[in-house]
Design a protein around this nucleic acid. Sequence first.
RNA 1: GGCGGCGUAGCCAAGUGGCUAAGGCAGUGGUCUGCAAAACCAUUAUUCAGCGGUUCAAAUCCGCUCGCCGCCUCCA
Length: 465
Amino acid sequence: MDLVLFNTRSRRKETFTPLQAGKVGLYTCGPTVYNYAHIGNLRTYVFEDILKRVLLYNGLQVKHVMNITDVGHLTGDRDMGEDKMEQGAKREGRSAWDIAAYYTTAFKEDLARLNIIDPTIWCKATDTIPEQISLIETLETKGYTYRTGDGIYFDTARFEQYGQLSRQDRDALQEGARVEKNLDKRNSTDFALWKFSPENVQRQMEWDSPWGRGFPGWHIECSAMSMKYLGDQLDIHCGGTDHIDVHHTNEIAQSEAATGKRFFNFWMHGEFLNIQGGKKMAKSEGNFLTLQNTFIDNDIDPLVYRYATFHSHYRKPMEYSDDSIAAAGNGLRTLRGQVTRLVERTGGEKSPIDDSFRTKFLCRLNDDLNMPQALAVVQELLKADLPDPVKLATIQEFDAAVLGLELDREVAADPLPPEILELIGLRKQAREEKNWAESDRLRDEIQDLGYVVQDGKAGMRVIKK
RNA sequence: GGCGGCGUAGCCAAGUGGCUAAGGCAGUGGUCUGCAAAACCAUUAUUCAGCGGUUCAAAUCCGCUCGCCGCCUCCA
């Protein structure tokens, strides 16, 4: 079955074929580690995780590289303004290196909480400075660079296909519409490859280079790292939709100028998470929700968020609200309950999976990762006229391979604590004696301890809330 | 100013030319239950922002209008 993916480069769905049969090189733009990731950022990483899992489910080997941007880039406009890492360090009274390490750990923890599979290779910008310098040297040799008072710049006018990805008319862009102009640049779209450390200022992060002491520009790291680790397997490059116009456009320009070869066949971009009536979530908008402050602190399973993102397509903006999270929470609980009952009814009986449902599920996934429809297939499966062991085996495969929702978690839940078991015993006795008042009182007591009591045909069921 | 996206039931949302407009959440009715909860079954858009056009046929294509949003600083 063909895997069809939307390629930003062509703005259409294309059949995906890896450069080397059976193997895929995947590069996903990672975070700048100067603060926590917000759940809008995390939506993109969940989308990329689904992409990777679908590639694997299609039987492909995936070499996945994700970078950590730990060099401080700039808060202000392109190539001006304050350095984000240094600013974070100042804010928290720690070194830039400490800040990077701390937020890198926090980021990886968030990914783990969302069941996002780790990349094959993690790489840090600060570990590939020599590669970045050497790439800039190549560009310099080929005549794509020029020097200004504050750095080495890429001359976008010398790269004919500049802006092919963004489809923006270079001349129509209004530099300075929102920010101060950099008057030293030849073209408004030119960007820094290497920035000089300011005179008389000791930066925490700076390196020697053929052009003087300084630090690399933002875009060069992704080019250097993808070439270093993926080499001739430049299949798919992902990121947020905001990267199309500047970051990825510049990556393509500098990479293709340097190598003369095509830099990545497929470019895929995740849409934003919106909040408060369609506004994007951003640090600057003051609606900064993290996994910690929105889910963990409210005792909501982070996988509820993972599940919530599956309800909209990755190329459409997703509406975030308390209601949508509550709906996802209810839905996930129901789903886990259904799987739990299947486990109980089948008593662990092994079974082959249903091939036609597998094909149907894969078919929806292979149509540009249509998760809403893939979820509909799961619902259809649960209602289908199939033996329970087959249903269970099939849904467990879907979950393990792609969904990553731990649908049989209830079954695997921790055993009940002794005090709860004792209350259950007392309540059973009261019920046998038809002492309903005592039975109801004990039910309330168990519930107050954070457990749900359900009386069914097979007896009493007590599960953690 | 330039580029782009969106508007489908109370909510989230799929579908982008042709069978009865997916699915979830919430709601409603029922079964079960000492009562509840859970579960299970059933049910919920003659209609896809509005108007006009193309077509044998449009939520899906075209035009206009209204509303919302993103990018062109850093940003997922």
